[in-house]
Nucleic acid binder design. Structure first.
Lengths: 222, 222
DNA sequence: CGAATTAATGACTAACCAGTCAGTAAGTTG
DNA sequence: CAACTTACTGACTGGTTAGTCATTAATTCG
């Protein structure tokens, strides 16, 4: 019996030979595995052998597609992050509503993205590795931070123009993002280690409330 | 000339022999060097040889004082962090003023601490290593996060009691800390790699403004 | 079907590194 | 000053790992 028989009732697909040639599918699978392992262990502790095994290939094959561990790491960051930035920009460009609603919507969107998609793991990775890979940090600033800040600025400008918002200085925009970043960092490192995850929706809602109106009681009397 | 002469005008201290016996001073010096190297490279990439060299001793001596790299790491975290938490608690207990002033004061204090003292490097280290050292994350939660949250809660309670603040749910307290944590993380990883440090005082002031009153314009009209 | 092409493999190597320990010398005691 | 104690050293070991390459086998083409 050289070829194992396919069990009755299973998919009519072919039984996979030990070594399949799948040049097109490999890079994506490798990058998926790399995200998994890099985000769990950090750059130095992640082993190419483990990434390869998770992708269902040998280490030699991994090095056929990526010239080094470092290049693999950078490619993984690009593939994970860039599509999501573009999508956020399109959402912002098409948004129809008040600046307040848009601000709340942006935070809620980021919270949902971080909790459902693996981009949520990127802030932790970038912060951990920025010192060792300044080049990566520069890429991150240019391709992610700048573009996210631009989206936030467009919301603020809309709000100021409509008389909804007070002006906000450019250097302080990061403060408006900080609760969502904290959420991602917490849920990807300290939270799981301690069994106390944060609820993304609740954090987004509370952050929007604080940042829009603050925790002080409104002065009713003049 | 077996003993090199001390140059005129220099300190009247003895010329250090190659091997000095300084049992009392070593642990502290080693922990300082460890903070330096661990915060620059992360746990896995930091080499005991390098830490020892920075502390002015050999690797063998390092292992005389700490049984392993991991124990050295934990001792370094404890020594760096604990004294500062206690000081913050004493400040809070002695504070005399409105809740608003206390909130602003706390953020300003944290900003100053992070920019002048090496505790500013701890958030990055903890977040990076929490997955690999769950035990460390638990220590951090219990000894730092809980106590910092308690200080913040005391401010919020004072504010609510005085009619200054609206009530804030316990799970959302982290949002009030997030700008200061973001500041520390940025200035210890992405910022330097990209030549764009954040100004701590400005971030503290803007964060306090946003969190107290929000970015929305106050409704003058009823 | 047989030859040619190339995707995939995994044993190998060169380098690295945490931790050890036999030996050295600084300091102490009688 | 001699005998002793102990802080300190650094060459070494055992284990690990990033990256290589000769070999194998899946696929294509004539």
């Amino acid at each position: 019996m050289p070829v194992p028989s396919v069990p009755l009732g299973s998919e009519p697909s072919v039984v996979p030979p030990r070594r399949r040639r799948r040049k097109e599918a490999r890079p994506g699978e490798i990058l998926d595995a790399a995200l998994e392992v890099f985000s769990a262990k950090g750059f130095s502790a992640a082993r190419p052998d483990e990434i390869a095994a998770l992708a269902g290939i040998s280490k030699g094959t991994l090095y056929l597609y990526f010239p080094s561990k470092e290049e693999l790491f950078k490619a993984m960051v690009r593939q994970t992050v860039l599509p999501n930035v573009g999508e956020m920009e399109r959402w912002a460009a098409a948004f129809d509503g008040s600046a307040t609603e848009m601000f709340q919507g942006l935070l809620a969107r980021i919270a949902r993205l971080f909790s459902t998609h693996r981009v949520g793991r990127m802030p932790k990775i970038i912060i951990s590795e920025a010192t060792a890979f300044p080049e990566l940090a520069q890429f991150w600033i240019g391709e992610v931070v700048e573009r996210a800040f631009a989206v936030m600025r467009s919301i603020l400008d809309r709000g100021v123009a409509a008389g909804e918002f007070t002006p906000v200085r450019a250097e302080a925009v990061i403060v408006l993002f900080s609760p969502m970043l904290m959420l991602a960092l917490w849920n990807q490192s300290i939270g799981p280690a301690v069994g106390r995850p944060l609820d993304p929706e609740m954090i987004a809602a509370e952050a929007a409330r604080f940042l829009l109106d603050g925790i002080r009681v409104r002065e009713e009397a003049r």
